[in-house]
Design a protein around this nucleic acid. Structure first.
Length: 574
DNA sequence: GCCGTTTTCGGCCCGACTGTTTTCAGTCG
């Protein structure tokens, strides 16, 4: 039986709704699929458990027909109804939904009236001005669509770090155990924890490369072998991600690992550094200028030979790490275990799937000492944002849970919408009732750079703002950052003593690591926040920590590495 | 397709923003 996850189920139901809408079905029928998908997304239990326990029927919006479909999907991993619908449209049509501003109605019009069913065709139609002439579209939407297509093309063939790492581990683990393999590791941008990557790079050492390459090709999940030489192999996984494996002799592994980890700029600088020290560094190993090989049994030993501190892969971006390593001045990077508590999690009060108590118990289980609840604020209708009476209600519940649980402190927070003018969407009296306020933008993304910068700066001036949430609003591989001047925002944060969030959700990782470095220089504390909407969301903290490490952050630069006492002092609550 | 009764079909429906219109439809969070 294929174990189908909640995400997959929700996606299939949403797509079914879209397909029905494309067909021109009754809009309420389409909505039934969207509603069911939304309500299922809010469930704590995985679909399989829901089916097994018979609780599926109790979920609002799931009637007899949808129950049958969900059971089919959960039990067989497929849904005939969905596949039938899907086969009625060209596969490429769904790419159009990735263009911002194109929803079902517009895609339907484009498909039916222009006969356009792929991104390439749409781009061509735009250059011929045909989209602008279509009813319901105009010059501006055509320009926006062209911009959107350019973005989608740029992101095509790239994967989120979280997904790529899972796929990398899926291949690496069996490979480590394959006969003849001495060592194997991830390398490339994945080892550097880059927020998005193009593929999975692996390096292994073995006496017989062919046997290792055979083992790779035979792994489950390998769709096909794309390329193969005596020592290298490139395969395609069923997830769509490509994996590159290079096999080297045992003695070459440390040098190969260092060189293949990159980045290009870092390796060039490392090679130049080696040369200056009368060495030559290549994938094949380290040697003296006279050609004599210098054995190194690990990457750390290789760096030591070069009179450098070992440089963590996250820092290998050619931004001064070699000079720092030479001076023994590398930062002591933050570790996941440094995180003492969590801010910015959602609960069932707004759009989260778990209750305050469930989230708190999970945080406690994971060894955290405090948990800052930050549900959506009142103007976030779409996310069931909290009206003022519901804020009071939540505070009473937090008091109750705090009294009940020992060893963890639940803090009263809110993720307050920053309105277009930069104000927050509660009265001062209500804002004053929170222990902390995460101020975030969730609307009017299209402001000019000037207006958006002023908006964020004003939010940072607000005495009730504790930290700025997901500062650029980007969604990796799907939405660009809104226009803003980050320098000015960092200046404002510094001036007003505010914290900036590093949103750890793998789609966001916002603040970007480049600006983490800048924030560190200015002494602006960064808070690594999972923005969790269910207990599983706590897992995302690791991605935030990885991004923080790329930004040279140490324990002392990160707000939520502090103890609960320090946090309370800073937040002014007792 | 779901829900809730008025037991057998009619109603279902977030608001701001954008860009298209010339009063509104579509998208988005």
């Amino acid at each position: 039986m294929t174990a189908i996850g909640k995400k997959e189920l929700v996606r299939t139901l949403e797509e079914t709704g879209k397909l029905l809408e494309l067909k021109g079905e009754n809009p309420f029928k389409c909505r039934a699929f969207y509603n069911a998908a939304r309500n299922l997304e809010m469930q704590e239990e995985e679909p399989q458990a829901l089916v097994a326990s018979g609780r599926l029927a109790e979920i609002k919006g799931v009637g007899k027909a949808l129950q049958e479909k969900i059971v089919e999907l959960v039990e067989t991993g497929r849904l005939e109804y969905y596949e039938q619908l899907r086969s009625e449209f060209p596969d490429t049509l769904f790419d159009l939904f990735r263009v911002p501003g194109l929803g079902v109605k517009k895609v339907k019009a484009i498909y039916e009236k222009l006969g356009v069913a792929s991104l390439g065709e749409l781009e061509y139609a735009c250059t011929e001005n045909r989209l602008a002439l279509l009813e319901g579209f105009g010059e501006k939407s055509q320009a926006k669509v062209l911009q959107g297509i350019a973005m989608v093309k740029r992101f095509r063939g790239r994967f989120l770090y979280s997904q790529a790492r899972a796929e990398g581990q899926r291949v690496l683990e069996p490979l480590c155990g394959a006969p003849g393999v001495v060592q194997a590791d991830l390398c490339g941008s994945l080892r550097r924890c880059k927020e998005t990557v193009a593929d999975v790079d692996l390096v292994a050492s073995a006496g017989d490369p062919a046997a290792v390459l055979d083992a790779l090709a035979a792994l489950p999940g390998v769709e096909k072998v794309l390329e193969r030489t005596d020592t290298k192999c490139r395969i395609l996984l069923d997830s769509g991600i490509e994996v590159d494996l290079q096999v080297v002799p045992e003695e070459a592994f440390p040098a190969a690992l260092a060189v293949l980890t990159g980045s290009k700029g870092h390796v060039a600088a490392l090679k130049a550094w080696a040369k200056k020290k009368d060495y030559e560094l290549t994938e094949a190993g380290l040697s003296r200028s006279d050609g004599e090989a210098v054995p190194c049994d690990s990457e750390a030993a290789l760096f030591e030979q070069l009179a450098l501190e070992w440089i963590p892969p996250e820092l290998r971006e050619a931004t001064g790490e070699i000079e720092a390593a030479a001076e023994g001045a590398l930062p002591k990077l933050i570790e996941p275990s440094d995180i003492q508590g969590i801010f910015h999690v959602h609960t069932t009060y707004s759009d989260g799937a778990d209750t305050i108590e469930v989230m708190a118990r999970e945080a406690q289980k994971r060894g955290y000492h405090y948990l800052g609840i930050a549900d959506h604020s009142q103007s976030a209708f779409y996310a069931n944002g909290l009206s003022e009476p519901r804020v009071r209600q939540q505070h009473e519940e937090i008091d109750r849970v705090n009294a009940k649980l020992k060893g963890i402190t639940i803090l009263k927070g809110i993720e307050a919408d920053i309105l277009p003018d930069g104000s927050l969407d509660y009265s001062d009296a209500v804002l004053a009732s929170f222990d902390f306020v995460v101020a975030s933008v969730h609307s009017s993304f299209g402001l000019s750079e000037e207006a958006m910068t002023a908006r964020l700066c004003r939010a940072l001036e607000n005495p009730y703002t504790t930290m700025l949430g997901h500062p650029t609003g980007r969604l990796l591989l799907s939405r660009e950052s809104y226009a803003l001047d980050m320098e000015k925002i960092l200046q404002a944060a510094q001036k007003h003593g505010k914290i900036i969030e590093l949103n750890a959700h793998p789609y966001r990782l916002d603040l970007d690591w480049i600006f983490c470095k800048e924030a560190r220089k200015r002494g602006i504390p960064i808070s690594i926040n999972p923005d969790a909407h269910e207990t599983a969301g706590f897992d995302d903290v690791q991605y935030g920590v990885a991004a923080a490490r790329r930004g040279w952050l140490e324990k002392g630069n990160v707000f939520n590495t502090q103890s609960v006492e320090q946090i309370k002092k800073r937040l002014g609550s007792s």
